[in-house]
């Protein structure tokens, strides 16, 4: 099968208007992800790879490449630890084709 793919290369094709300093998704309690979430499945399921696992077991969320699908919020149904809003009007991903 094909080698591991870098999602950044895919996202590079997309158009974004990033709302600098105002992420539309936030982890409510970072400690919870690190200590009480066993699967940390957001790091696998996010189709834009926005969630990464750091060496210290913490999850880092960078929303710049977010495709605004909602997956992270819905799969976090055991902890409900994702505060999810749409970006402000006009910001975020701007699909050319959709």
């Amino acid at each position: 099968m094909s080698a591991n793919v870098k999602v950044e290369e895919k996202l590079f094709q997309n158009r974004y208007r990033v709302d600098a300093g105002r992420p539309h998704i936030q982890i409510k309690d970072e400690e919870l992800c690190a200590s009480r979430c066993e699967t940390q499945q957001c790091t696998v399921c996010c189709p834009a790879g926005c969630y990464t696992l750091e060496g210290n077991g913490r999850i880092v969320l960078i929303t710049d490449g977010c495709l605004e699908c909602g997956t992270c919020r819905i799969i976090c149904n055991d902890h409900r630890n994702v505060a999810w809003e749409y970006p402000r009007g006009g910001y975020g991903v701007l699909f050319k084709f959709g």
């Binding site: 099968m1 997309n14 189709p47 790879g49 997956t71």
Partner: peptide
């Protein structure tokens, strides 16, 4: 990951020749 799944699907021997030479211009999720 979902994008790895897509990548492996694209590499399927029955699918890859159909996409051969195409230029990927957008990646979306929904």
């Amino acid at each position: 990951s979902p994008y790895q799944l897509l990548e492996e699907m694209k590499a399927h021997p029955s699918i890859a020749p159909i996409l051969e030479g195409g230029e990927m211009k957008e990646y979306t999720a929904h």
